[in-house]
């Protein structure tokens, strides 16, 4: 049987450390590979000023470079140091939508996501990433506190 793949919805902020640690521990135990996904929130329907339109292409390049060097690369290195294999991916769009899509197309065995930590009214009304994944995930999903 081929190696199992776990998808990690990785935000890369201060709280994401415990998520990654847990995912690494599980991957090492199960002999699975990790696919670390960082999503840059982006809507093709948001509104931009002409100046922002002009700068968008350059900004996107910067954002991708920053996400790679500050978030994905360190995470992949951390996994490798722990003795598991990992790949990284940076995408633009809605987090839940993209994690579901990636988990489906890559036939992942499990999804790991951090608890949102937000108790705000907005998060309750409009949902949060873990809530969205709880409703839509195609595979078992672990919400890591």
């Amino acid at each position: 049987m081929s190696q199992e793949l776990f998808v990690v919805a990785y935000e890369g902020d201060d709280d994401s450390g415990s998520l990654l640690d847990y995912a690494i521990a599980r991957a090492v135990k199960e002999g699975a590979a990790l696919h670390i996904v960082h999503v840059l929130e982006w809507s093709p329907y948001s509104f931009l000023t002409p100046q922002e339109v002009e700068e968008r292409h350059a900004r996107r390049k910067e954002e991708l470079a920053r996400a790679k060097s500050a978030i994905i690369d360190p995470a992949v290195e951390k996994v490798a140091a722990a003795g598991a294999t990992a790949t990284g991916e940076i995408r633009y769009g809605q987090v839940v939508e993209l994690i579901v899509e990636i988990a489906t197309t890559r036939a992942a065995a499990m999804i790991f996501v951090g608890r949102s930590g937000s108790n705000s009214v907005a998060a309750r009304v409009f949902g949060s990433v873990p809530l969205g994944l709880a409703q839509l995930a195609p595979v078992p999903t672990v919400i890591v506190p």
Binding site: L40, W42, P44, F47, L48, V53, R56, R60, L64, Y92
Partner: peptide, 23 residues
């Protein structure tokens, strides 16, 4: 967005170009 390549997400969409010009 029917003709928009998903790999180009994060670039200005046709919708945004229209909305910006309209504003």
């Amino acid at each position: 967005g029917d003709y928009s390549d998903p790999d180009d997400a994060g670039e200005v969409s046709h919708f945004q170009a229209l909305a910006t010009a309209l504003s």
